[in-house]
Design a protein around this nucleic acid. Structure first.
Lengths: 196, 196
DNA sequence: CAGAGATGGAACCGATCGGTACCAAACAGC
DNA sequence: GCTGTTTGGTACCGATCGGTTCCATCTCTG
């Protein structure tokens, strides 16, 4: 059964790491905000780095389940299910504590690509792309793998833009690009015959 | 006349900040790698933060002049000058020390949007978008301002993707999206008459 | 050559970093 | 009620953080 202290540590650390950055938050802050004793912390996690990795793993799971829920709850047709991504992002951009993508931020803060935290963050993006790839393949798009990478690229670009200008404008802006992209890509599969 | 020590500090700091991150590099590292004495450092810069801001200012100027050179040296026609951006990015992605966009990284590391470093980084992106806007307006695109934001979004998305997968593949992938985007946008201005 | 300003080196400062050791209280299951 | 585990609190550790101070040396100018 899960420990109480461990749970409080993870939730406090997740919030603090996202709001202020991994390196910017010391162990002392996590302890005081979670109410956990210093010894208890190191009983549950060998080091701060291990806490970071565990926080990222949980956030990866939570984020991807949010993505699938958002897509499945979308009232759209099956053709442009992936576009629901950008409407979902718009909600995220509006959050008061929005500070970009936790995984992009981790890859920036943990510069070494071989570091555990960096790898977990990179693998998260891979899994998101695989999921999008599945959606696009099911919708019958020809170059679905490339298309999935392009949609993820648009999503990340929108997140960066939202972080920079601190508005939700980037979401519909990226959505429009995605629509233009899917409109041209769709033709290859669904409209092989010239229409003019 | 420019001080020798100051110049060495700025070049060493720029490299170290980009390779390892701003917070990850202490003053000691900058001193040892630049060969500048501790006292000399604080004679030239009131604090480390001031050095960070000055490094960003110089990188902003250098990056934007690189952008204009890249665009002007492009063999393309005036219509898709902006696409030269992505070919230029591909070269950057291939660099051995590529570690994303220094300004995105700064906005991630310096979480407070009001901090001087964060603001300089955000303003850099604004200036890039203004430049792209000018290019698109000159080429006769109708919604050139929105289009400029979308191209910048694609550029940032490509940079993030390149940081994640550590290949140059993201550049042509983003370029293809930009071409699809400009292809649909161009019609509004240059082809007001239906072609079928 | 003489003087002035800039320089590099090192000692030192308080604060904070991640991590360890120890302890008394709270808690559980029997 | 008693035992054994988990808990929060605190003191402490060496290392490093950004920053100050002093000094001997170097270089450039007059």
């Amino acid at each position: 059964m899960p420990s109480n202290a461990r749970e409080r540590l993870l939730t406090a650390a997740e919030r603090l790491f996202y709001e202020e950055g991994i390196r910017a938050v010391g162990v002392e802050r996590i302890l005081s905000e979670s109410g956990v004793g210093r010894a208890s912390f190191y009983r549950h996690f060998p080091s701060k780095d291990d806490l970071v990795v565990e926080v990222l793993r949980r956030r990866d799971a939570a984020w991807r389940s949010w993505l699938t829920d958002t897509v499945e709850a979308s009232p759209r047709g099956t053709d442009d299910l992936a576009l629901a991504l950008f409407d979902g992002l718009a909600e995220r951009f509006a959050a008061a504590d929005f500070r970009g993508c936790a995984f992009i931020n981790t890859m920036v803060e943990e510069a070494d690509p071989a570091s555990p935290a960096h790898r977990v963050a990179a693998e998260h993006k891979e899994k998101v792309i695989e999921y999008l790839d599945g959606l696009l393949a099911a919708a019958g798009y020809r170059g679905h793998r490339t298309l999935a990478g392009q949609l993820a690229l648009l999503g990340d670009g929108a997140i960066v833009a939202a972080l920079r200008e601190r508005t939700t404008d980037a979401a519909p802006r990226a959505r429009a690009v995605a629509e233009a992209l899917l409109a041209t890509a769709e033709r290859e599969e669904h409209l092989p015959l010239p229409d003019c």
